[in-house]
Every structure is written in structure tokens, then in C-alpha cells.
């Protein structure tokens, strides 16, 4: 399979996203903000549609729209003006509605749009991979640099705020990282399944981890493993790669839940 260039490119891009998505999603899941990735994905759909309408790179417009949507969610959440789930709902529906309007205006309800909705990893080009790798490395470096600070806010947001940690700036950084992950991952698993790659590996890891650090490491391992196994299965079984990757991650949740259950019973 590696003799084919499109598979080599797919594995490289997939590996970066397989590591980045759970690394960022880890901090969302720990803080019961799992649906934020989904909400930002919906806004990214509006960004893709706008890119198609304006004939600009949909990845860049999706990144910009997702970042704005993420900051809006965080702003509404932090002001407590709107309950967390209502803030998400507002952004969800506005994103989808704007996307539908932009797509209609562009007259492009076609395959070009579907590859962003459902993923199209086998069509990524060298330029796409270069973008995914460079921005992915930046995202991972930010997570590594801010790891202790993000953990401190995850463990006790109010305590961190009392003792002067820049909680608001860290929260905005986290949603921008989420937007970056969504923009990079939408060609891999599709906008509709991005949040799954941010949440399911973390959920699987939490069942068998023994510390926060081990949970993060295992999340990344499950994310990377799901992409590699999912792509391989998709190639040999002629299945859609995005859906297959997410099904592998979901299977990992079931396996670790069973292992965790057995361990607790022992």
C-alpha cells in the first residue's frame, strides 16, 4: 500500500491529526467541554462554504471561522450570560445556517463540499500535507509548552484564577487550538466526525490510565493507532477512511471500558 503516493501522504497527514486531535481534545474532555469540538466544527462548515463562495482556500476560511466561533463560545461561557449548552447551541445552529446560505449562494452543493463534510484523506496533495504537518507541529508545540498551565486550569479553574494564572488567555488559547485541529482534520475525517477524533481516544484512555500524564499519552496513542488501523482497514476493505478511523476509535472505547471493568472487579 505504501508504494502508492496518495497512501503515503494520507498516512503522514493522518498521523499528525491522529496525534494533535486527542492532545487538544484531552483538555476539553477533562473539563466536560467535549461538545465544543463539535460546535467549532459546525462553524468551520460555514468557513468552508465561505471559502468556496469567495474562491479562497476553504482550509484558511474554515480556520478563521472556527477560531472566531471558538472565541465566541468561550466568551459566552465565561460571562455566564448564557448557559454552556445554550452557548454551544447558538454557535452550532448559526454555523450550520450560515454554511447552508453560503453554499446556496455559491451554487456548489456538490462533491467539493462533501469532501470537507465527510473527509477525503486519499485526495490530499503534497501541499495539503505540508500545511497539516507545519501547523500540526505548531499546535503540538503549544500544547507541550502550556501543558502544566492547561493542567492547572483543568484541575481547578477557580483556584487558578484566584492565584493569578491567566485563565481567560489559556481558555482562548485552547479554543484556538481546537479551531486549528478542526481545520486540519476536516480533510482527514470530515467536519461531521472531527469531534469524535478529539473525544473518543481520550474517553478510551481514561478507562485504563493511572494519572493525568498517562491519560494524555494513552489518548495520543489511541488516536494515532486509530488513524493507522483505520486507514489500513479502509485501504484493504475498500471502506470510507474517515468513518473507518472513527469506528476503530469507538471500538477502542469499548475495549478499554471492558479492560477497566475487569480490572476494577479483580
Amino acid at each position: 500500500m505504501f508504494e502508492l503516493e496518495f497512501m503515503r501522504l494520507a498516512f503522514v497527514a493522518g498521523a499528525v491529526v491522529g496525534v494533535l486531535a486527542p492532545a487538544v481534545g484531552f483538555f476539553l474532555v477533562q473539563r466536560q467541554l467535549s461538545l465544543v469540538g463539535d460546535g467549532i466544527g459546525h462553524v468551520a462548515f460555514a468557513g468552508v462554504a465561505l471559502g468556496i463562495l469567495l474562491d479562497v482556500s476553504p482550509v484558511l476560511t474554515a480556520l478563521a471561522a472556527a477560531a472566531v466561533g471558538g472565541v465566541a463560545i468561550e466568551w459566552l461561557r465565561s460571562r455566564r450570560a448564557t448557559a454552556g449548552d445554550q452557548a454551544l447551541a447558538l454557535v452550532f445552529y448559526t454555523g450550520i445556517a450560515a454554511g447552508v446560505v453560503f453554499v446556496a449562494l455559491a451554487g456548489s452543493l456538490d462533491v467539493g463540499l462533501f469532501q470537507y463534510l465527510f473527509g477525503s484523506i486519499l485526495t490530499v496533495t503534497r501541499a495539503d500535507v505540508a500545511l497539516v504537518v507545519s501547523l500540526g507541529v505548531v499546535g503540538l508545540a503549544v500544547v507541550a509548552l502550556l501543558y502544566r498551565a492547561l493542567c492547572a486550569v483543568t484541575i481547578d479553574e477557580e483556584g487558578a484564577r484566584v492565584s493569578g494564572i491567566p485563565v481567560a488567555a489559556l481558555n482562548v488559547t485552547l479554543v484556538v487550538l481546537t479551531a486549528l485541529t478542526v481545520a486540519l482534520a476536516m480533510r482527514i475525517v470530515g467536519i461531521l466526525l472531527i469531534a469524535a477524533l478529539m473525544v473518543l481516544p481520550v474517553t478510551a484512555a481514561a478507562r485504563v490510565a493511572w494519572s493525568l500524564a498517562s491519560a494524555l499519552g494513552l489518548s495520543i496513542g489511541v488516536g494515532l493507532g486509530s488513524v493507522v488501523a483505520g486507514l489500513t482497514a479502509a485501504y484493504y476493505l475498500d471502506l470510507p477512511p474517515g468513518g473507518t478511523i472513527v469506528l476503530v476509535a469507538a471500538a477502542c472505547v469499548l475495549v478499554t471500558a471492558a479492560v477497566g471493568g475487569l480490572r476494577a472487579a479483580a
Binding site: Q30, C151, I155, G159, V202, A206, S211, L212, S214
Partner: peptide, 14 residues
């Protein structure tokens, strides 16, 4: 927090 957190990780946050 959803994942397990050790005593040392909690104290490190402080």
C-alpha cells in the same frame, strides 16, 4: 476531571 489525577499532579497545579 474525567481522567485519574495523582496527588502529585494536583499539588503541582498549585
Amino acid at each position: 476531571v474525567e481522567a485519574p489525577v495523582t496527588v502529585r499532579e494536583v499539588v503541582a497545579a498549585g
